[in-house]
């Protein structure tokens, strides 16, 4: 088990998130009720997604400098787990919205922007798979990935704040605006972000290693 401390840390933080997140005292707010606890599960998906995308963009830039396919492996797999988190974020958000905002989809600016962002990353996967040459796929993928990230950040962090959104911190929602000041929620929220991000990184690295094993096997088949 080489360098497995961060995996153990991830498991520990997430077990803490689940148990403390479901059982600890939370602010008793109208409409939200116990669903305020989704902060540790829904909101952290998006934070995890952003951190995984940052790592992915770092490796995309590195690929463009080195042309080493190993960097491309990291870029695509970190994007893959980021997309997984994004899809889970949308799904959990829809369920949460149904019972607090009254509808699965209210056309909320942040909901729409997040959906556009996810579609952008689906397009990234389709674009990559439509190119057969490995170096070409990696180079075009890296450039697309950098631009997609540059569009994604304003799409979910800036644009929704310029209009009225149901999401907290963007106008509208009176029940939740103080959440980012509540120190009890933070005690679970921050460890949860770290834990989910580490889990996403773990899944990504496992898949990266799988890709590299596959490549070595393919090379052996071709050369034998």
């Amino acid at each position: 088990m080489r360098q497995s401390w961060w995996k153990i840390l991830a498991i520990g933080l997430l077990l803490y998130t689940i148990i403390a997140g479901l059982l600890m005292d939370v602010p008793r707010l109208a409409i939200l009720n116990e669903t305020i606890r989704a902060l540790h599960f829904h909101v952290t998906m998006w934070f995890g997604m952003i951190f995984l995308l940052i790592i992915s963009v770092y490796y995309s830039i590195r690929y463009l400098r080195t042309n080493n396919l190993k960097d491309d492996d990291m870029a695509i797999e970190f994007t893959n787990s980021a997309i997984l988190f994004g899809v889970l974020g949308i799904a959990t958000g829809m369920l949460w919205a149904k019972f607090t905002w009254g509808d699965y989809w209210s056309g909320d600016p942040k909901q729409n922007a997040a959906a556009i962002g996810i579609l952008m990353y689906f397009a990234y996967l389709i674009l990559r798979n439509s190119l057969t040459d490995l170096q070409q796929r990696a180079r075009i993928g890296a450039i697309y990935n950098i631009f997609a990230f540059a569009a994604f950040i304003p799409l979910i962090f800036v644009l929704p704040r310029l209009t009225d959104s149901l999401h907290p911190g963007n106008g509208g929602n009176p029940g939740f605006n103080a959440y980012d000041l509540d120190s009890k929620l933070r005690m679970v929220f921050y460890p949860a972000i770290i834990g989910w991000t580490l889990l996403g990184g773990w899944i990504a690295t496992v898949r990266v290693r799988m890709r590299r094993v596959e490549r070595v096997l393919e090379d052996k088949l071709i050369n034998s």
Partner: peptide, 15 residues
């Protein structure tokens, strides 16, 4: 996930 991780570790060693 740990099981998958270990399987890949074994594959890496055989390769």
């Amino acid at each position: 996930l740990i099981g998958t991780d270990r399987k890949i570790s074994k594959l890496e060693k055989t390769i």
